[in-house]
């Protein structure tokens, strides 16, 4: 059973760290809102090798964040698709 994790906080919060402690192979992590500030940190983390990484394009664009190659930019239509593809979701906030 795979899980979609959403993270909407900057590194000032421990939401992403808490997420990565429990995310397992086949899960997806989606950065939204201020979570997109952590895109580079997420991409460089060895704990994310078995995970699929995404960020909301409009939230990254609104903040002038360039996404690393391993973090896929998506829109809300794909966000909905991700929610449906995974059996459950956890929102880290």
């Amino acid at each position: 059973m795979s899980t979609l994790h959403t993270v909407n906080k900057t590194a000032a919060d421990d939401a992403l760290a808490a997420c990565l402690k429990v995310a397992s192979s086949g899960d997806s992590v989606l950065l939204i809102e201020d979570g997109v500030y952590q895109a580079s940190k997420l991409a460089g983390n060895p704990q994310t090798r078995a995970l699929k990484l995404f960020a909301l394009r409009e939230d990254a664009d609104a903040r002038g964040i360039s996404l690393p190659a391993t973090v896929t930019a998506i829109g809300y239509a794909q966000f909905v698709e991700l929610a449906c593809e995974h059996q459950r979701s956890v929102s880290w906030f």
Partner: peptide, 20 residues
């Protein structure tokens, strides 16, 4: 207060647009 309510709105509108 935070952006989350607007995110929820956009998610809901997109889900409806996709036929869910």
């Amino acid at each position: 207060s935070t952006e989350a309510a607007y995110s929820a709105y956009r998610f809901t509108a997109s889900a409806l647009a996709a036929g869910h």
